[in-house]
């Protein structure tokens, strides 16, 4: 059990850093999707089964589709975008910085010896659907507003430009 958690958490971090570091934007989007998939394994093992499904379908699926749509809409024939910016040089220090920060956090955790909480048992009597529909009305209302917002965003932002001659 714990091994799976460690492995999927590690993969999530590695794919996430890959998404940040990767030169090609398409591969970065795929890295993000893989990171998301690792997270959904992690969520499943931690007992959040419904959230794991959502993570896989919404974050790993839908968000990647959105990014790929963005990439294909911004395709430039000369592929000059790739040459123009030099992310690679600026992101080269990131793994070093991350390893440094990680070591620092580990040393802090080892020296401070804080009392850490344990993972509790998954309570059997709670159902996500009951909690969501019974207790979280405000969130549902917020989700409705968010989705309306997203609809307007697609309609307004992705539209071709010819209608807007001032």
């Amino acid at each position: 059990m714990n091994t799976i958690i460690y492995i999927s958490a590690g993969l999530m971090l590695i794919f996430g850093v890959y998404a940040v570091m990767e030169h090609s934007i398409l591969r970065a989007a795929i890295g993000l999707a893989l990171s998301s998939a690792s997270l959904s394994v992690l969520l499943y093992v931690l007992g959040a089964h419904l959230a794991a499904v959502f993570e896989l379908s919404v974050c790993s699926g839908l968000v990647t589709v959105i990014f790929i749509a963005g990439i294909s809409l911004s395709h430039s024939p000369k592929m000059e975008i790739q040459k123009e910016y030099r992310d690679k040089e600026r992101n080269r220090q990131l793994p070093l910085v991350l390893i440094g920060a990680g070591l620092l956090l580990v040393i802090l955790a080892l020296t401070l010896q804080l009392q850490t909480p344990q993972l509790g048992e998954v309570a059997a009597d709670q159902d996500v659907r009951d909690v969501l529909w019974g207790n979280r009305q405000a969130d549902i209302w917020g989700q409705i507003a968010l989705i309306l917002c997203g609809g307007v965003a697609v309609a307004v932002l992705f539209r071709e430009e010819r209608r807007e001659k001032k």
């Binding site: 919404v58 709670q126 996500v128 969501l132 989700q143 965003a153 932002l157």
Partner: peptide, 24 residues
Amino acid sequence: LALSETFVITVMVAEAIVAVVGTG
């Protein structure tokens, strides 16, 4: 855990919309 699962589901919706607006 059930409560935080509902949070996670809501956060994912927000995340997807942010991706739409950012990409747009």
